[in-house]
């Protein structure tokens, strides 16, 4: 299927009855979708990253985005919708510039996550799953985000905000609201939810080198090992490693 044919189909699609048919998807995004498809032996594997790209451009899974993915992959819109509605990271309504998550799975909940979620609802004046009227923030209750040793954990645009406290959470929102530069505790400076979605689609933003190697909890054991001089055993002798040179250390 050539790009030209596709555009024609999209023009027709814009006539489809839909409550929110706005889209920013144009030729460039379509070209990027084709790039994603080219990464995989079978193009349909590209669907999840393509939907991340739709969100980065349209701020949500737009009807137009669904149509385009279906066209490009040669599958039905029902199939695309089936996928889009299965995964929690895909939003049907526009997310905020900053998407704030509070982990309330058990460890975080008990350690203070439930308190933080209530506080965020009050601070932002919205409920879970909602976006502030100015489009600045959306709020979500998260399931365990693989950072339980930093509990209670919050996320902003899928960047870690580790070891939160009520004070730190309020300061975080105030700083983002004021447009000050905020850094993830284990990541880069905060960009936006839409930019994060573009990285998830497989288009790097050049920020991999920001942030630490590891957070304090990640190093808890290693620090003790260093203090005590504990190491993994040293291989007995090079000869013991069949045919290889063992690492020095």
């Amino acid at each position: 299927m050539s790009g030209h044919e596709f555009v024609a189909a999209f023009d027709d699609a814009s006539g489809i009855d839909s409550h929110d048919d706005q889209t920013n998807i144009g030729e460039q995004t379509i070209a990027e979708m084709r790039q994603i498809m080219a990464r995989y032996p079978e193009p349909r594997s590209a669907l999840l990253p393509m939907l991340h790209l739709v969100q980065s451009v349209d701020g949500r899974i737009s009807d137009a985005g669904v149509q385009i993915c279906a066209e490009l992959l040669g599958i039905s819109t029902a199939q695309v919708n089936g996928v889009a509605t299965f995964y929690t990271m895909y939003k049907r309504r526009p997310a905020g510039k900053h998407h704030v998550g509070v982990c309330t799975t058990t460890v975080c909940a008990v350690m203070g996550g439930d308190v933080l979620l209530d506080q965020m609802k009050e601070k932002l004046g919205i409920d879970e799953g909602e976006t502030t009227p100015d489009g600045m923030f959306s709020l979500e209750r998260l399931e365990c985000n693989a950072a339980c040793d930093f509990a209670p954990v919050m996320m902003v645009n899928w960047e870690f905000m580790d070891s939160m406290t009520p004070e730190k959470a309020n300061a975080l929102i105030d700083n983002l609201q004021a447009g000050r530069e905020v850094h993830s505790t284990r990541g880069a400076h905060i960009t936006s939810w839409a930019e994060a979605e573009r990285v998830l689609a497989g288009f790097p933003d050049g920020l991999a080198d920001e942030g630490p190697t590891a957070g304090p909890a990640s190093l808890a054991g290693l620090q003790i090992a260093r203090e005590k001089g504990w190491t993994a055993p040293v291989p007995p002798s090079p000869a013991a490693v069949d045919g290889g040179k063992p690492n020095e250390r």
């Binding site: 590891a214 990640s218 290693l222 090992a225 005590k228 504990w230 190491t231 993994a232």
Partner: peptide, 12 residues
């Protein structure tokens, strides 16, 4: 040793 940093040996 009690702790045997192998996977985590370069994290610091």
């Amino acid at each position: 040793d009690v702790l045997t940093p192998t996977l985590s040996d370069n994290w610091d």
